[in-house]
Design a protein around this nucleic acid. Sequence first.
DNA 1: CGGTTATGTCCGTGTACAGTAAACAGGGAA
DNA 2: TTCCCTGTTTACTGTACACGGACATAACCG
Lengths: 137, 137
Amino acid sequence: MSVYSKQGTSERQPVMTAQKPKFGPFIRERRTAKGYSLRRFAELVGISPTYLSHVEQDKVDSPPTADRIQKMAELLGESADELIAMAGRVPEDLPKIIQSQPEAMPALLRAVKGFTPEQLKRLQDQAAKMRKEGDPQ
Amino acid sequence: MSVYSKQGTSERQPVMTAQKPKFGPFIRERRTAKGYSLRRFAELVGISPTYLSHVEQDKVDSPPTADRIQKMAELLGESADELIAMAGRVPEDLPKIIQSQPEAMPALLRAVKGFTPEQLKRLQDQAAKMRKEGDPQ
DNA sequence: CGGTTATGTCCGTGTACAGTAAACAGGGAA
DNA sequence: TTCCCTGTTTACTGTACACGGACATAACCG
C-alpha cells in the first residue's frame, strides 16, 4: 500500500469473495432447476463456461457486471433487480437517472434511507401522481 | 473481441476520454483559483502529482473514484455530489441504500426519472415528514 | 552567472477487476 | 473402447485506476 493512501482511501470495503451469503450457488440452483447445462446457459448469457463455473462456485473476486446478471435473470425468470442487488451491484439505468439531477437525487435517496418497502411504495405512488398531474409549478 | 460477446454486451457505453464537457479542466481552474500547487493539492487529496496532472488534462481513461473526488470537493469548497456526477460516477453511499431495498428503491428512482429539482424536493419533504411521523403502518 | 527550488509533464510499472482459452477428469451411451 | 457431454482447473488477456522516477522549464537567491 502506497504512502498516498494514508489520506482518505481508508474504507475500501472488505473484499470478500462474495458479498452476502451466496450469489453463485443460487444461480447454480436455479440454472439446474431450469434444466440448463453450464455450457448451454453460459452461451445464452453470453459468457464463457469457464467464467460461469467460477461464478457459481464463488471463486471470483467480484460477480459479473449488471448486464450479464440481467441476462441471467431473464433466462431464469427471476427479478433482475433482486439478483443484481444480491451480487452487490446497481442496475445499469440508475446511475444515469441519479446523474441527471446530481444534487436532488442523492438528497432524495438519503432521505429515504432505511425506509420499508411500504413507505417507498407510498412515495412511488406520490411520484406517479405528480407525473400524471403535470408539473404543478 | 471474443465469440461470447455477440450476445448482449452491445452497449458498453461510449468510452470517451472524458464523459461530458470537462471534469479535468474544471478541477484545474478551481485548484489554481484556490492557490494550490499541483503537488500540494495532490498531497492533500491523497493522490500522486502525476496522476492529478493526468486527470486535469483529461489524459486518463476514466476519472478518479468517488472517494478521491469527494476529497477534492471538500478542499475546493464545491459540492461533492456535483463533482462526482460531473465525473460520471455515483456517490459511494448510494449503492448501499439502493441495495437495502433491491426492488423498491430502483422502482422509486424510475418513477422519478426526468423530474425537476423542485419536484424531487417536494418528494424529499414528503419523505422527511413520513420519517418524523413514524411509520404509519 | 550558477545553484537551488518549485512548477507541471512524460514514460514506465503495478494491482485489481472482469473476463477468455486450452486442457483436463468423470460419467453414460453405443 | 470410443465418443460425447458434464463441470473443473490453470494460465492468460485487456482495461481501469492508480504510483514512481526522471525530466524540462521558470523563478529566485547568492
